[in-house]
């Protein structure tokens, strides 16, 4: 895969060089280099959009999604110099062109951010351990919750005390109800485990032997819940950045198509 990635990046770099050279030749020939750089950028943009189409056509064997991702990233990065070549500046004149380049920067920026996430988040997930399918997280939490409730019932039955029941009502129910400490997990903070330790430390002096045995099991479930929460936070972030990238990309494509239309109306 590394070899494939190098080849794809080289192709992207070569494309930029070829477009730059062609545009330069057009400029020297007193022609309009923006036509070459503009249409090349449009072609690359369409190729980038095809990545999304490819994801929707997963049943067709159109190269692996991983290769498509590398293509998407490499050509997305190559698009930046091509667009600068086209505009001739980082911030062009004209309101429409400024809106267009603004959208382009937002798409590029969010794309680069997403790529960074795709590199760093899996590392975090690996660090957390385990494999949890995002869509199954509610089910997992439900199962953990049921297990905790079961343990508390058993402890009450065995000890005759309701200390754990009260604690569950006061704080554990909140903790197990849904994923917690989203941003703490995202930033890799120790806050969730600290919260857990603090609860354990404050509760343990009041527990009898039978309750303690149940609570130790509950603690292991809390550890597991923290892991699930970590997965949830990381995987959510991997999915939610697209909430920005995709709509802005679509807006950009519409603005680009209108721009192409305007350019051709000029030439009528």
């Amino acid at each position: 895969m590394r070899r494939k990635a190098i080849i794809i990046w080289l192709i992207a770099a070569t494309l930029v060089a070829v477009v730059a050279w062609q545009a330069r030749q057009a400029h020297l020939a007193l022609q309009n280099p923006a036509i070459i750089s503009g249409y090349s950028a449009l072609a690359v943009m369409i190729a980038l959009v095809l990545f999304n189409v490819r994801k929707k056509l997963s049943m067709i064997p159109l190269v692996s999604a991983r290769v498509w991702l590398i293509i998407h990233v490499a050509f997305g990065v190559a698009l930046l110099p091509m667009v600068w070549l086209h505009t001739g500046s980082l911030w062009p004149e004209g309101l429409y062109e400024q809106v267009l380049i603004g959208l382009f920067y937002l798409v590029s920026g969010s794309g680069i951010f997403g790529y960074w996430l795709s590199l760093t988040v899996p590392r975090r997930l690996r660090h957390l351990g385990g494999e949890i399918i995002y869509e199954r997280i509610p089910h997992e939490l439900h199962e953990v919750r049921e297990q905790v409730k079961q343990l508390i019932f058993e402890a009450v039955e065995a000890s005759g005390h309701e200390t754990l029941t009260l604690e569950y009502k006061q704080s554990l129910a909140w903790f197990f109800a849904r994923p917690r400490f989203f941003f703490s997990h995202l930033s890799g903070s120790r806050r969730p485990s600290a919260w857990q330790e603090q609860k354990a430390q404050s509760l343990k002096p009041f527990l009898g032997e039978a309750e303690m045995r149940s609570f130790e099991k509950i603690e292991r479930l809390m550890d597991y819940k923290n892991k699930v929460d970590g997965h949830y936070a990381a995987q959510s972030f991997l999915k939610y950045w697209l909430y920005f990238h995709l709509p802005v990309s679509l807006s950009l494509i519409i603005f680009v198509l209108w721009h192409v239309l305007l350019v051709h109306l000029y030439a009528l």
């Binding site: 697209l242 909430y243 709509p247 519409i254």
Partner: peptide, 16 residues
């Protein structure tokens, strides 16, 4: 995501 993309597209078309 699809709905948001649609909103983005509609906004772009409205502005144009």
């Amino acid at each position: 995501r699809g709905r948001l993309a649609l909103v983005g597209a509609v906004l772009a078309i409205c502005v144009l």
